[in-house]
Write a protein that binds this DNA or RNA. Structure first.
Length: 539
RNA sequence: GCGGGUGUAGUUCAAUGGUAGAACACCAGCUUCCCAAGCUGGACACGAGGGUUCGAUUCCCUUCACCCGCUCCA
């Protein structure tokens, strides 16, 4: 049976993944890739970069694509101008003040809990509710009656303030009846949740020099949009891709590497004409799903989850998550690998004009979010990030489709998918259980292993010669320790798709056997044809 | 952040208020002409800090990490 415990144990044992700083007891939410893991992850990122960016042919429209398009890459810094995160919306979203209720164990956003002062006799309490604005007064009154143990006929003993307040407008929470509590004063002090990693610019930096490690790579693409346009001659529609580390202070890192605090993203921002954005959204959504299945994720374990219209920001035409049935999730539940979001012109315009207000009235272009003085809450760059079609002379702010993938989550999904227990014969022909990582050859850390069948009679010499030749082209591994069966099993656990064995016949006719990891079948090929044969099989 | 559970070798597990065992894995050698567990030998562990005690891996406290549930998930 496939279980998370077994997968975690194999990852440690074989050097795919280690806990960060393990000798000091580890740090929650940080993980290191070992010798096999780093190869897997590099292969994964290289597959993505090749398939999405460097291997893309911009001269022809791929199947299902509305038109030909261009793709270029970018690699930008982790630390950026602090204003980036204000206009991207992360600064506001990531600085929630939260309170916990000691009684109900629930957590609330401090500025979202509303309520009213209620008085009976000389006792004055603040009764809260999460109810909608229309039901708020009734709900507050109902809870207050219950708290004071008043019957309906004595309702006139209760006075409820006309003014609705949020918790952040109170001096303290001592007299607050929390939304799910029965007694007063159960809320903790509000605590700031810094979901972005704060850091300081410059050696003498004070509070004014605070900035953040990026929580996503995407913003680096948006702020370089004009640079890329001015330097690369790309024309809309085109995409900019980037692979890089991002950082988020996850509240509850859990499930192995699934929710890490330092993680790597593979993101594309695809810029297109607003009237074509729906087609491009569908194209990327379907293409990205197909990418995972092409690399070996079972379509039974993958789902495309379209967000419901009510989940979407109103400027967005659609958002879909590609999700995988990780073994640590209950049956029927899926964990996100990648989100494909239609982001409209929100990001480019926010970086031009100042942070747009997602709560802008529907049916018209979004407006810049204003502060209490009626000025932009956060100033934009003031730079023109619109695009001019040089043929039609039409000028517009491109709409953006954002396929945003998690490299570590993908690596984990491929590891989980690959873990297989099956049966293989032992030297007596009896079936024994075997653990094999059925990684796609493109992802496998080691492409082939080379063995002398036994360490004598000149087999080692030939095997070393074969190894030296292959090593120039492929990541291969040499092993002559123990019996050959044991060496095969070791490679099975590492996910090596092929094992090359030099035997007695090799001495006579310069042939070797290729053993297939999944079928255990062996075929004999000439040493001179080996590189070509392997490259063909690995393609 | 809350509640429950668990921390012993690379892995999976024992035992013990007084010398910490095993299996597999690993290393060296022997054996071995195709699928791990033949032979000999070897190296390797009580998450961290504090307390109680003559003595703590064991009891107590704190802390860190992992697992389960709740919460959160931009």
């Amino acid at each position: 049976m496939k279980s998370m415990d077994k997968i975690v144990s194999l990852c440690k044992r074989r050097g795919f993944l280690f806990q960060s700083s393990e000798i000091y007891g580890g740090v929650q939410g940080f993980w290191d890739y070992g010798p096999l893991g780093v190869e897997l992850k590099r292969n994964l990122k290289e597959a993505w970069w090749h398939d999405m960016i460097s291997g893309h042919n911009e001269l022809v429209a791929p199947p299902e694509a509305p038109s030909p398009f261009e793709m270029v890459g970018l690699d930008c810094t982790i630390i950026m101008h602090p204003q980036v995160w204000k206009n991207s919306g992360h600064y506001d979203l990531f600085h929630d003040h939260m309170v916990d209720c000691r009684e109900s164990k629930k957590r609330y956003r401090f500025d979202q809990v509303r309520g009213r002062w209620c008085q009976k006799g000389d006792q004055k309490i603040f009764v809260t509710t999460l109810a909608e604005a229309e039901q708020e007064l009734d709900e507050v009154r109902r809870r207050a009656m219950k708290f004071f143990k008043l019957r309906a006929k004595n309702a006139d003993q209760l006075t409820v303030s006309d003014e609705s307040l949020t918790l952040d407008q109170l001096d303290d929470t001592d007299d607050v009846l929390a939304p799910d509590a029965k007694s007063l004063g159960t809320l903790t002090e509000p605590r700031e949740f810094n979901l972005m990693f704060k850091t300081t610019l410059g050696a003498l930096g004070g509070e004014d020099d605070v900035t953040f490690l990026r929580p996503e790579t995407a913003q680096g693409i948006f702020v370089n949009f004009k640079n890329v346009l001015d330097s690369s001659r790309v024309k809309v529609p085109f995409g900019i891709g980037q692979i890089g580390k991002s950082f988020r202070n996850e509240i509850t890192p859990r499930n192995f590497t699934f929710r890490s605090r330092e993680f790597e993203q593979m993101e594309i921002e695809f810029f297109c004409q607003p009237d074509q954005s729906q087609q491009w959204y569908r194209y990327w959504r379907d293409r990205r799903l197909a990418w995972y299945t092409a690399l070996g994720l079972s379509s039974n374990s993958l789902i495309m989850r379209e967000h419901h219209p009510e989940e979407l920001a109103h400027y967005s035409v659609g958002t879909a998550d590609i999700e995988y049935a990780f073994p640590f999730l209950p049956p029927g539940e899926y964990g996100e690998l990648e989100g494909i979001a239609h982001r409209g012109d929100f990001d480019l315009r926010s970086h031009m004009e100042g942070k747009l207000d997602p709560k802008s009235p529907e049916g018209q272009p979004m407006q810049v979010e204003l502060n209490e003085h009626g000025k932009p809450k956060y100033r934009g760059s003031g730079k023109d990030l619109s695009y001019r079609n040089e043929v039609t002379n039409e000028r517009f702010v491109p709409h953006v489709i954002e396929p945003s993938a998690g490299a570590d989550r993908a690596a984990l999904a491929f590891l989980c998918e690959a873990y297989t227990e099956d049966e293989a014969p032992n030297d007596k022909g009896e079936m024994e259980s075997r653990v094999v990582m059925k990684l796609h050859p493109r992802l496998a850390p080691i492409k082939a292993a080379v063995f002398p069948l036994v360490k004598k009679g000149g087999m080692s010499e030939i095997a070393k010669e074969v190894y030296g030749e292959l090593k120039q082209h492929l990541n291969v591994f040499y092993d002559d320790k123990g019996t050959v069966g044991r060496r095969y099993r070791r490679q099975d656990e590492a996910g090596t798709p092929y094992c090359i064995t030099v035997d007695g016949d090799s001495l006579e006719d310069r042939t070797v056997t290729i053993r297939d990891r999944d079928t255990l079948e062996q075929t004999r090929v000439k040493i001179d044809d080996l590189t070509t044969e392997l490259k063909q099989r690995l393609a």
